[in-house]
């Protein structure tokens, strides 16, 4: 009996719920010990454009889902990951992580999703407010999602870092376009597959592989992106992005300030940074009462 030939996985990018190859047709070879592990798409600015378009189209329906519903969908991602643990562990090891650390990272990642999955319906009770204005108005402030967020995920922590970038941003109703780790992209594509199977509507999460130097500026300049969550150490690129972001006053959050591995990262304050406060006024009618003196 001849030896079974293993079926190799094709790593494609994730745009609008589909898995296309980059429109540019370019790829790079990910190697380990001089053996090719995978061919990874070297995406182009047109892929960024398509991804932003898809994220924009998805925003209305994702943000208008009930918080309870978003909560369940995020929980579903964690469930699906739990079932696909082995694949992630394999990929983490392929990318050079030790077995024990790989297990720790996948467990931490799943637990982190569970942590954030509980937040969608708890952000506003904590950070919203009813404001006691002096005039006869009912006045309240709630936090709303910003829209399309451009994410540049960390180079290290290819799974936990990615989860920590994406989940706190989309839980409030934002959609995102994520440029993932350049040297460790495998888990990102598997995560996309999990997301694709987890009731997350198409376009809410878009995942792009390729050169950050090339792609990130296009994301930073895009006029239909509302905010950036940037977790990179390359100071030059980061500054360039923040400079470019001012063209339409994108909100920028430097995620590299936070210790992703640390449990202190788990807080609603990171969620709040990608939300916008909206205050609504409405008059309150006060009755007049009559008395008679017949």
């Amino acid at each position: 009996m001849s030896k079974r030939i293993k079926v190799l996985k094709t790593y494609k990018i994730f745009i609008d719920g589909k898995f296309p190859r980059t429109e540019s047709g370019r790829y790079t070879q990910l190697k380990k010990d001089n053996l090719t592990i995978a061919n990874v798409c070297l995406s182009s600015r047109k892929d960024i454009r398509n991804a932003v378009l898809s994220a924009r189209n998805a925003f209305e329906s994702w943000s208008s889902k009930s918080a309870y519903n978003r909560s369940q969908i995020l929980y579903r991602i964690a469930e699906m990951m739990e079932g696909n643990k082995n694949q992630f562990i394999e990929e983490l090891i392929l990318q050079g992580e030790e077995f024990n650390k790989a297990i720790l990272e996948i467990d931490q990642s799943i637990d982190r999703i569970i942590y954030f999955a509980g937040w969608p319906d708890k952000i506003n009770p904590i950070f919203g407010s009813v404001n006691p204005v002096a005039s006869s108005h009912f006045n309240f402030t709630i936090l709303e999602p910003m829209g399309v967020v451009g994410i540049v995920a960390s180079e290290e922590n290819s799974l936990l870092g990615l989860i920590s970038s994406i989940i706190p941003i989309i839980l409030s109703g934002n959609t995102c376009v994520t440029i993932v780790s350049e040297k460790l992209p495998l888990c990102a594509i598997s995560l996309a597959e999990v997301i694709s199977n987890s009731d997350v509507p198409n376009g809410v999460v878009n995942i792009i592989t390729g050169s950050k130097d090339e792609l990130a500026p296009h994301l930073a300049q895009h006029m239909d992106v509302n905010a950036l969550g940037v977790n990179i150490d390359n100071k030059e690129l980061k500054n360039q992005m923040f400079f470019q972001a001012s063209n339409n006053l994108k909100r920028v959050v430097d995620v590299s300030k936070y210790k992703i591995e640390d449990s202190s990262f788990e807080s609603p304050y990171i969620v709040k940074k990608f939300m916008e406060a909206k205050t609504t006024w409405h008059p309150i009618e006060k009755d007049f009462t009559s008395t008679n003196n017949y």
């Binding site: 404001n131 204005v133 002096a134 005039s135 006045n139 406060a277 205050t279 006024w281």
Partner: peptide, 18 residues
Amino acid sequence: AGVIWANTYNKFDPTSPF
């Protein structure tokens, strides 16, 4: 928009975020 005035307009108050 950050401020929505429903059946009123241009109201301001220190307790109300703008």
